[in-house]
Amino acid sequence: MPQHDSAFATALALILDLDPTLLGIVVLSLQVSLSAVLIAALLALPLGAALALWRFPGRGVLVVALNALMGLPPVVAGLAVYLLLSRAGPLGELGLLFTPGAMVVAQVLLVLPIIAALTRQQVEELHLEYREQLRSLGLSRLRMIPTLLWDARLGLMTVVLAGFGRASAEVGAVMIVGGNIDGVTRVMTTAIVLETSKGNLPLALGLGIVLLGLVGLVNAAAHLVGETARRRLG
């Protein structure tokens, strides 16, 4: 399996040489996925918490829909954003298609349901425990949201990481709305697809290893933060 050996060698060489093209791809990948996760979390955390606290007609449907959207195929999300942002689309004026901005939008669409659905679950459980005490303190449901989100923070970190995993792993959405343009919208996953189809397997595998390493690094950092907090809070 000389090809696999050379894949590791290629990966190592890519990293050690600090290949500028690779560096550009890595930076763009992280920029896109981290922005998407950040935006999605800012929207989805309060949304999930609100869904946990309020009872209203149609809530069940919304919860099921959100759960189902966790499995939204990236290509479908990509297609939807593509139609939205294409010249003839309702948001065509923005000229976002085939820019990193469009990729962020598509990934937000993928990550938001995951964070919202899992947040709802976690906050609902915590709320069951805290409800009487918080009401006794005179808190309205709106004011309970930050309290519950903060006290669920350890679990929610894992939730946000799951969102980041989804964003950094998907290829369908960024391929469609980004277009895999060299130096503009090429990210790790689309680069791997391209190199594979070109038959440049060592480079594709090398990129794959770098991607895995990056995801591992982000998760390790989060784990470290979580464990420290857990030990401090008991």
């Binding site: 425990e129 805290y130 009487e132 005490q133 006794s136 303190l137 309290t147 006290d151």
Partner: peptide, 14 residues
């Protein structure tokens, strides 16, 4: 102004 103390105290994770 009222307050309540429960059988099992509910304390925040802080």
């Amino acid at each position: 102004r009222q307050a309540m103390v429960f059988q099992r105290p509910v304390l925040l994770k802080r």
